[in-house]
C-alpha cells in the first residue's frame, strides 16, 4: 500500500530539494517582507499592526511620495530608453551579424565583452572615464574640437541619469544581440527566399517576414528587460551612491528601498525604516509581477506557428 503510494508519488521527492530552496530563499523572504510592511517599526523593534499605513505613507505623504514617484519615473525612463536602444540598435546589429560577412564574428565578440564584465568593474571604469578633471572622455571631446561639450556628466541633474542609462546599455547590449541572433537563426530560410521570389525588397522582407516571426523573442526580451530595469540598483549604487545624487536625479526604486531599509550608506549610519522599506519592496513586487504577467499573457495570445 505504502509502496504503491510511494511509487506513484515519487516525483515529490524529486521536487523537494528545489521546493525547499525556493521556499527558503524566495517565498519566505517575500512573505516576511509582506508581513513587515503591515507593521509599525521603531528601529529594529516591531511595533503595533499598521494595516496599510506604510503604503499610504509611501504613496501619499511628503516627503516619501515625492521620492517614490520620482524613483518610479526614473525606472520607467530607464526601461523605455533601454528598450528603445535594444530594439533598434540591438536588432539592427543582430540583423547585420546574421549576414555573416567577414570580420563580423570579431565585432560580435566586441559587443558581447562588456556583458561579461561585472557591474562593479563597468561602474568603476566609467567613473574614471567620465571624471570631469582627468577623465578620458572629456579629454577626447576636447581633442576632437568639441571642448564646449565638456560637462560633469555624472554631477548634473540633467545628464546624470541619461549617462547611467547609456553606460548600462553599453554593458547590456551584447545580450539582446545574442538573443535576437539566435531568434533570427531560428527563422527558416525558405520564408525569406519565398519573399524574395515574390519580389519583396530587403526592407519589406524584414518588415513583413522577419519582424513578425521575431516578435516572440522581442517580447520575451522586453519582459526580461522590464524586470531587470525595475530591479536595477548596482550600477547607480556604484556610480552615484545610495542617495540618488545629484539631487535625487538618479534615484531608482532599488536605491530608494536600500536607503530606506538600511540608512544612507554615505552618512555612515542612520536608522533604517523597515516598515516603509518593506512597503516599497512590496510595491515593486506588485508592479513588476503585474506587468510581467500581463506581458506574458499578451505574448501567449499572439503566439504564431510556422
Amino acid at each position: 500500500m505504502v509502496r504503491r503510494w510511494m511509487e506513484r508519488h515519487a516525483y515529490i521527492f524529486f521536487l523537494l530539494p528545489g521546493l525547499v530552496l525556493y521556499g527558503v530563499f524566495m517565498v519566505y523572504p517575500l512573505a516576511s517582507s509582506l508581513g513587515y510592511s503591515l507593521f509599525h517599526w521603531d528601529g529594529l523593534i516591531r511595533g503595533p499592526f499598521a494595516g496599510l499605513e506604510n503604503f499610504k505613507t509611501v504613496l501619499t505623504r511628503s516627503p516619501y511620495q515625492a521620492r517614490f514617484w520620482g524613483a518610479l519615473s526614473h525606472n520607467v525612463l530607464f526601461f523605455v530608453t533601454t528598450f528603445a536602444i535594444q530594439t533598434t540598435l540591438g536588432l539592427a546589429l543582430a540583423v547585420l551579424f546574421r549576414k555573416k560577412w567577414r570580420g563580423f564574428g570579431f565585432f560580435q565578440t566586441v559587443y558581447f565583452i562588456p556583458y561579461t564584465l561585472s557591474m562593479v568593474v563597468v561602474g568603476f571604469l566609467w567613473l574614471l572615464l567620465l571624471n570631469p578633471t582627468w577623465g578620458a572622455f572629456n579629454q577626447f571631446l576636447r581633442l576632437i574640437g568639441l571642448g564646449s561639450w565638456v560637462q560633469p556628466w555624472l554631477g548634473q541633474t540633467e545628464t546624470a541619469l541619461w549617462t547611467i542609462i547609456l553606460v548600462n546599455a553599453w554593458r547590456w547590449l551584447g545580450f539582446p544581440i545574442l538573443v535576437f541572433l539566435a531568434g533570427l537563426q531560428g527563422i527558416p530560410e525558405e520564408l525569406h527566399e519565398a519573399a524574395t521570389v515574390d519580389g519583396a525588397t530587403g526592407w519589406q522582407t524584414f518588415r513583413h517576414v522577419t519582424l513578425p516571426l521575431l516578435a516572440p523573442v522581442i517580447g520575451m526580451m522586453t519582459i526580461l528587460t522590464f524586470i531587470w530595469d525595475f530591479n536595477a540598483f548596482e550600477l547607480v549604487f556604484i556610480m552615484q551612491g545610495s542617495s540618488g545624487n545629484p539631487y535625487y536625479s538618479t534615484d531608482l526604486l532599488g536605491t530608494l528601498f536600500y536607503r530606506t531599509a538600511f540608512g544612507d550608506s554615505t552618512t555612515g549610519g542612520e536608522p533604517g525604516q523597515i516598515g516603509i522599506a518593506s512597503a516599497i519592496a512590496v510595491l515593486m513586487l506588485i508592479i513588476i509581477g503585474a506587468v510581467s504577467i500581463l506581458g506574458v499573457r499578451q505574448m501567449q495570445k499572439r503566439q504564431v506557428e510556422y
Partner: peptide
C-alpha cells in the same frame, strides 16, 4: 540622524 529622511540626507541633496 535619528530618523528618516535624516537631516543629513536632506541637507546633502537639497
Amino acid at each position: 540622524r535619528y530618523g528618516q529622511p535624516s537631516g543629513s540626507t536632506l541637507l546633502q541633496n537639497e
